[in-house]
């Protein structure tokens, strides 16, 4: 496994784990760290042994946001040339399921990173927030877009304008997160969910993600056509034969990802 400066990456039983590793800074994201996260996610996405990717933070917080010191002196030209958000864009091309296990503070860039996950499990007491407005700026890594797609413009504007903290209970009511669990069991419960997905046919999991993502951007008509093609495509897989044969033979399927 490649070693990184600001994150830790490991793999066990088909489940890849990426841990943000700047606990003393509540895992504040600097540019190198974002690149490391994206590199790790991409390499797991290409690794045939990996079926699910889990993303979490070491210490008390998932991530308290971007490293402000790093950007305080930036100007528009430098930002344009730096094109840092291109790294974030790469996260949207990941084909495998990403489960975020979040806790403590999920703020700013940390919240945007969480919104890039497919499923989110939060420890009770977790707080989400976009505090950028308090610094005279706004989210730049997809926050205004992804949040709005999930909760609608009414709540998105309220939260983005006020910078207020969104408690896990509120987040779950608005469909931002999937589950709230006891803090002590965050990783255990996350891994259980990861394992449930890891035993499914990987190609089906993959094309479901692909199709659901299209529902965000496409018209219903185009989305339906797209879904149909993916459905047909799965009938070219060995796992479809295995799945249906196992069902008829009343046994558990053994999916190979082919």
């Amino acid at each position: 496994m490649k070693s990184y400066e600001f994150i830790e990456a490991s793999l066990s039983d088909g489940i890849a784990l990426i841990e943000l590793n700047r606990p003393a800074q509540y895992n504040a994201l600097n540019r190198t760290m974002v690149r490391e996260i994206v590199d790790a996610v991409e390499s797991f996405d290409r690794n045939e042994e990996v079926r699910v990717i889990v993303l979490t933070g070491k210490g008390r917080a998932f991530s308290a946001g971007a490293d402000i010191d790093e950007m305080a002196g930036d100007d528009p030209v430098r930002l344009e040339l730096l094109n840092q958000f291109a790294d974030w864009d790469r996260l949207s091309f990941i084909k495998k399921p990403i489960i975020g296990a979040v806790k403590g503070y999920v703020f700013g860039g940390g919240f945007e990173l969480a919104l890039n996950c497919d499923l989110l499990i939060a420890a009770s007491g977790t707080e989400f927030s976009f505090p950028e407005v308090n610094l005279g700026v706004m989210p730049g890594a997809g926050g205004t877009q992804r949040l709005t797609k999930i909760v609608g413009r009414t709540k998105a504007l309220e939260w983005l304008w006020s910078g207020s903290r969104i408690h896990a209970e509120t987040a779950i009511q608005h469909g931002l997160i999937n589950r709230i669990v006891s803090p002590e069991l965050l990783m255990e419960e996350t891994m259980k969910m990861a394992k449930q997905i890891a035993v499914q046919a990987p190609l089906a999991i993959r094309l479901i993600k692909d199709s659901v993502n299209k529902a965000v951007d496409y018209s219903l008509y185009e989305g339906m056509q797209y879904e149909r093609k993916n459905f047909y495509l799965l009938f070219a897989s060995e796992d479809q034969k295995e799945g249906m044969t196992a069902f008829i033979e009343k046994r558990k399927p053994d999916f190979k990802g082919r």
Partner: peptide, 9 residues
């Protein structure tokens, strides 16, 4: 569910 998690802990 809360009870199950509590007892697990």
């Amino acid at each position: 569910e809360e009870e199950a998690q509590g007892q697990r802990i």
